[in-house]
Amino acid sequence: MSRLTGLFTQLQDAGRAALVPFMTAGDPSLTATVPLMHALAAAGADAIELGMPFSDPMADGPSIQRASERALARGVKLRMVLGWVREFRMTNRHTPIILMGYLNPVEAMGVISFAEAAAAAGVDGVILVDLTPEEGRGEATLLQQRGIDPIFLLAPTSGPERVARVRSMGSGFVYYVSLRGITGATSADWVEVLQRVRDLRRQLGLPVAVGFGIRDAATVARVAAEADAVVVGSALVEQLAECATDQEAIQVATRFVQALAEAVRTTERVCA
């Protein structure tokens, strides 16, 4: 059983949602990346979404754009990101790692080389924001053949045909984008989102993670009542950006993620 499937099975039994913080690899510093990943896990993250920096992150708001720019300015490359995952895996065998980024850097490395290196490093899932299921058939298969789940996104605008397509191609879980917008936005209508999440869980037969616009423990708790996983990105990235030292970043991340972890652990699931 894959780490992701194992996690969702275990949490199903525990009756709670997973907390998945997002951080950009290489930000706020190169040396902080692996210690931060360990800190997130220790603070109660059930899985970690690690951003692969790209020069033109079209779906991201200002916080993650700037984190990406800073990381690239520090010389972050895709192979370095995979190296950090490998380093993390030396002492953490259980926390799933999901890489999130855009197609072009993966293509530049070569999709097969990337899939092999990611599998060897211990990556569990890959989200490529600009790779739709229609265009991504080949890539999805190459990842799955190496034991990595291709995670597709669904949005409030996705109709039944698209849900069916993602159902047939995705594995691991499906990422539901809570709003019409970019990362870091704050205008989701949570009643509507949670209704949609209920429908999607039934239609997909896969766990549903919800992200975009979730910035605090109260919202985490609300979403955790319905979703299988709750992703918090920009709010953490913004706090890390303010940190002057690696140590401060670790403290800030720990405090923030502990509060969110508490929220998922004290929220009872509405539906099983």
Partner: peptide, 12 residues
């Protein structure tokens, strides 16, 4: 060519 966009835009 093709269509490489965030899911939110596909329907549009």
């Amino acid at each position: 060519g093709g269509r490489f966009v965030a899911e939110t835009l596909v329907t549009a």
